[in-house]
């Protein structure tokens, strides 16, 4: 049991060689790998941290946007509600106005119908009355009704009051020299000349007469010149008769509105 000096030196050299080899093939690569991994992990952690921060930032931004969107949506919704209310109001108003207009139109139409019917009835009555009068007059005398009417009209012209006469003459004198005579039936020459003679003697002037048949008058004669009108028709009597008939009805209609 003694030290072999050659072995000792050789072992020292061996140890140094082994140290160099292990440094080359073990410690260096292992430590390098560990360092690299650590730096990689640190980088990953940093990356994760930055991503987390970014995510947080994005989340905050998203929340902000969401809130903004919500408020905008609420505003829009409110606006839409207001607009729809306004529209509803407008439409209701429009519908009401239209309904009123329609009602008015309907009322007018009813009134027009009513008036038309009344006119028709009036005309029928006039015609019937005329027919009755004609028959009656024909039965009672030998002179037919038309002649009687002409005679009556001539008599009416004759019987005009002083003021009326003056007005008639002055109106005829101020205008054209033609007078329009309308009648419901065709007048005979004798009757035409009788009327011309009577008017000329009244005005003391020669006028041109234009005779026209207007069935609307039903029965009667109407003389017009320069806006002046002189007539005798059954419709006048019927109108006065109608007025008398309508007077109590009109009074009844007026009374409730007065109360209101």
């Amino acid at each position: 049991m003694q030290i072999d000096w050659f072995t000792l030196v050789a072992q020292v050299i061996n140890f140094l060689v082994l140290m160099w080899l292990l440094r080359r093939y073990l410690y260096k690569p292992i430590l390098k790998a560990i360092d690299e991994r650590e730096s990689k992990i640190v980088a990953q952690l940093k990356d994760a941290e930055s991503k987390k921060k970014e995510a947080l930032k994005e989340r905050v931004e998203f929340n902000k946007k969401n809130e903004k969107f919500d408020s905008e949506r609420d505003e829009l919704m409110q606006k839409v509600i207001d607009e729809s209310k306004e529209q509803k109001k407008k439409l209701t108003e429009k519908a009401r106005l239209e309904a009123n207009a329609l009602k008015k139109k309907l009322d007018d139409e009813i009134l027009a119908n009513h008036a038309a019917q009344k006119n028709e009835i009036e005309e029928n009555i006039q015609r019937e009355v005329l027919e009755i009068a004609r028959k009656t007059l024909a039965d009672l005398s030998s002179v037919d009704l038309e002649k009687q009417m002409v005679r009556t009209f001539v008599a009416k012209v004759n019987q005009l009051g002083k003021e009326e006469k003056e007005k008639f003459v002055s109106t005829l004198a101020s205008g054209k020299d033609s007078i329009l005579v309308q009648s419901a039936f065709d007048l005979s020459k004798t009757e035409k000349s009788e009327i011309e003679k009577e008017v000329n003697s009244l005005t003391k002037k020669e006028y041109d007469f234009e005779f026209k048949v207007t069935p609307k008058l039903i029965s009667g004669i109407e003389l017009s010149a320069n806006g002046y009108k002189l007539s005798w028709t059954i419709s006048e009597y019927i109108h006065s008769f109608e007025n008398e008939l309508n007077a109590p009805i009109q009074d009844k209609k007026d009374q409730p509105s007065d109360k209101k």
């Binding site: 061996n14 060689v17 082994l18 080899l21 292990l22 093939y25 073990l26 690569p29 292992i30 390098k32 790998a33 690299e36 991994r37 990689k40 992990i41």
Partner: peptide, 19 residues
């Protein structure tokens, strides 16, 4: 020495830096 160096070389020639 040979075994230690060879084993070290075999292991460390394919070191990974992954997790």
């Amino acid at each position: 020495m040979a075994v230690l160096v060879i084993v070290s070389y075999l292991i460390t020639r394919r070191l990974r830096t992954d997790i």
